[in-house]
Nucleic acid binder design. Sequence first.
RNA 1: GGCUCUGUGGUCAAGCGGUUAAGACGGAGCCCUCUCAAGGCUCAAUCCCGGGUUCGAUUCCCGGCAGGGUCACCA
Length: 551
Amino acid sequence: MDLNKLADALIPDEGLLPPEEYEIIFPPREMKKGAEVTRLAPSPTGFIHLGNLYSALADERAAHTTGGVFYLRIEDTDEKRKVEGAVESVIRSLKYFGINFDEGAEIDSPLNVYGPYYQRQRAKIYRSFVKKLIKEGRAYPCFCTEEELEKIRAEQTEKKLVTGYYGAYAKCRGLSEEQIYKNLAEKKPYVIRLKSMGDVNVKHPFHDAIKGEITVTENDQDVVILKSDGIPTYHFAHAIDDHFMRTTLVIRGEEWLSSLPIHIELFSVLGFKPPRYAHTCSLMKVDGETKRKLSKRKDPELSLDYYRKAGYYPEAVIRYLMTLLNSDFEEWTLKFPQADWHDFKFRIEKMGKSGALFDLDKLSDVSKTLISTKSPEDIYDFLKGWTDEFGNEKDRAHFEEREYIIKILNLIMGTGGKKRRKDIERAEQGVRLMDYFFDDSFAPRYEFRFDRETVDAVLERFERLYDPADDNGAWFSKVKSVAAELGFAAEMADFKLRPEAYRGSVADVAEILRIAVTGSANSPDLCTIMSILGKERCVARLRAARMRGKE
RNA sequence: GGCUCUGUGGUCAAGCGGUUAAGACGGAGCCCUCUCAAGGCUCAAUCCCGGGUUCGAUUCCCGGCAGGGUCACCA
């Protein structure tokens, strides 16, 4: 059979460059030793989730801690998956979390010499190599219809054989020249398949950067490399693109492990040196009795928007992910709490081998710890940004009062104290923490533990004594004097010694005041709260509490 | 089912032939304390099972078991 003629018939020369040309057009990158070239290669569905962020972070760190390049390639070989504006959305989402690309699709960079970065725009490159493989007898046309393939599969399933297009089941592999041209003349649609030379009984050891030594069984499937629309499948595009974009380290989910044999054969057939591979474990979630991979349909917490809406500090999400990526990151942060996380020595080899359960509690802890290291001004900006986008009318109005909010933040963040408070774990919750500082969102629950008469007496007496000029010490002595006057222990020590001698302690008196002023039995330092609120508002609240229920 | 990956407390996990088996989150308790946080201290809780190899296995080997992934003209 004249393979050159066949190649021309199958892949007409639409101005294709000879394959060797591409080695010159896309020369190896000049980089220092050890620098990694990594990429994020999403399909343009626009939906970028936590798993993608996790993987992107590994890519970004691997590249940037070695002085390499991190680029964005769009795998748009499947027309059905395309969503408008998806690429911009991917870039924007990652940027929000501080992850930026050096080159690639829609990235404005002088480095963009390995493009185009959209696979559909690379059709000619792929076709040139498919043609080469046909000429070499390593690829052939397949005219099987969907029904025929289904029939083969059914037969294989029934005989309990491995399903797929291989060996004796690869019917089109043995098509005669005459049949091929006849089919072509009849304009039957066709795909191009790899003529696999592998043997599933042969296994090879293979080194994965994360998994370590693994076993790879040879591929014997005549996989489709060029679809009937003339666009390559993922497998083929992967081999071509990662070779010519000079990727050094392919980081991808472990669901790809099972197609690694195909990729190895493809690289070999094309005469390319394969990149290093790092197969990451997937983020898991408990579902009933067992763990399962996080699913974007079932788990809202997989969506990155979920974290933006809930108001997690973006760097907190990244730091949490870093602890999953390299578990010694956490100890490093404990040792250097103020350090920029970028200075941590990330290494792909330190990544865990088993799927991690996503832990919201841990995220919250990372988040509140991080926020506690920030200044009230920074947190004001962060919270303001959140209220602008997700807050309600009142929140937005409150955040116009910058100075007032900063005073509150100083209090609830414990600025100036020996140890910071860690009350704010995310914007949505942090903003609610401040509601009682504003009359229009102050919603007291007057759940006093003492009878009305006692409560009113405490409130009334304290109001008479209250002087906003008092410092903490003076303020508290007044609380104590009210306590003593009404038969409560002014000193906790006395109360602990003889609880039966008193109606309660100064703590109970403070609680009554606290409920009246903040609407809740728990709050940070009440004296400071009162000074932030101002005399007028405090007095009004003390009186309102006495009026409760009497309207 | 074939192929393949994984298996240390509830969770994330250190460990790499000899350890009282780190640390963090979460839980319990105590201290501090006007409440709540924060902080300090303490406690409970782990090597999937069975065989080997070895003076000695969490660690090495084999076999189970369990869980995950994958078997498309989707990526």
